[in-house]
Design a protein around this nucleic acid. Structure first.
Lengths: 106, 106
DNA sequence: TTCATGTGATACCTTTTGGTATCTCATTAA
DNA sequence: TTAATGAGATACCAAAAGGTATCACATGAA
């Protein structure tokens, strides 16, 4: 029943795709919308969107001749559950990790 | 002050490297130790360890002619803090996400 | 209908990536 | 001192990844 997590990790590995996810978190966008924010061809953006879709991180819905790309929160589950594996080993180190996150966000 | 997160995301993108991290979570290991668990050359494993080190996910300490590889919990901070960006957008969807994680772990 | 627009799909190119083979160096044991 | 052992470094290779260029197709507006 577990989704394979590899396509999701792979989708997150590229900085352009992570930027796209941030944009889609703010609002749904067509491919043309997304392309307008990057210095690359629409075809390249389309490829990134396909990878994101394969990773389950976005969903695509047709509306007329447009394709609405939306972020899919559930798609993050495989990654987050993978991280949870380590919780058991970090009983005492976990607080150090959390403070590290605080610093990183400063 | 922010560490660049790209090397970390990149390090996590490979399934072999994620397996190595799980092994190192259980116990520190030399390169030979890690290599014993995979059907690939020591040189290939060494490359993976270098990528993990570049991503800040492990630390390496010399002990005699051996190199002890240890997991570095703080190294996960850039990734976890990246995920936190989305929390603001998922105020209401967050519960759906969490239940999705539960399912994924079943 | 006619034409512009949003998208899909394919071929092609360059760089990166994951892997092997091989040689060398440093350290430890005999 | 002399092996044997653990590891680093380099060259090399095939496949995957990120990108462009280009053509085809469906939909909406005039």
């Amino acid at each position: 029943m577990n989704m394979p997590s590899q396509p999701t990790f792979r989708a997150l590995a590229d900085p352009t795709r992570r930027d796209i996810l941030k944009m889609l978190a703010a609002q749904d966008m067509t491919i043309a919308d997304v392309s307008g924010h990057f210095d690359m061809t629409r075809a390249a953006v389309k490829k990134h969107l396909t990878v994101l879709s394969d990773g389950g991180l976005i969903t695509v819905e047709a509306r007329g001749r447009e394709r609405i790309n939306s972020i899919n929160p559930q798609g993050f589950a495989p990654v987050l559950s993978w991280f949870e594996y380590f919780d058991g080993f970090w009983d005492d180190r976990l607080s150090a990790l959390k403070s590290a996150i605080e610093k990183d966000n400063t």
